[in-house]
Nucleic acid binder design. Structure first.
Lengths: 106, 106
DNA sequence: ATCATATGTAAGTATTATATTACACATGGA
DNA sequence: TCCATGTGTAATATAATACTTACATATGAT
């Protein structure tokens, strides 16, 4: 289970989830792992765009990927959801905000 | 207590909280209401920028404002935090993602 | 050999979000 | 009157995200 150690971790997760596409991705993956091309078809989005969103989810440690071989014999990159559970309330924010480094994006 | 009725509500809250300044604002307000100019001083940010962030929090219904008169006699705009508590996990996302309208920003 | 279906990514563009600057206006007190 | 301290916002600049297009490469089946 994912654990939030500091304010920057919290921010990463919130940023990762604050996008409609990424919420949809999480919703689909909550039903089971899936590989990229199939996921793109399910969600009706381009694969390059999907990669971008998967990267953000991966950086927040919400998903994990692994290469596997399909029945067809082709290699496929599977993504699965890492179980998470955050009690998001004002106390959590108050606690973790003190370890927030106001990061600048490059 | 704030309640999430659908995926768009969830997204609004996540977007509102996915910014370091706004997390800090929430943290400060969790200790009690405060008026804008004082809040700006506490956080070391300009008032116009603070307004922008407060608006986003207000749109997500995380904060509420009211005009009051200070001891000094000046009118001041106070913001207070609306209590919130979300159990953010994959089940919640799965449930609410179905009522997500993939909103386009204007 | 060609087709269908995978991964992977670079480069460019478009759109949003964030931030600053510069105002206007109001009130109380020295 | 002038200063300090409030609110409120418009215009602009900059930075970050999101998205598209166009590739290259690999493998199995026909």
């Amino acid at each position: 289970m994912i654990h939030l150690n500091n304010g920057d971790d919290l921010l990463l997760v919130l940023e990762a989830l604050s996008n409609p596409h990424r919420l949809k991705i999480v919703a689909v993956l909550s039903e089971g792992r899936q590989y990229v091309s199939e996921l793109a078809r399910l969600l009706g989005m381009s694969r390059p765009l999907l990669y971008l969103h998967l990267q953000k989810l991966e950086e927040a440690n919400l998903v994990t990927s692994s290469m596997e071989i399909l029945d067809s014999g082709k290699a496929a990159k599977f993504y699965r959801l890492n179980p998470f559970q955050f009690n998001l309330n004002e106390e959590l924010v108050h606690q973790l905000a003190s370890t927030l480094t106001m990061p600048k994006k490059k």
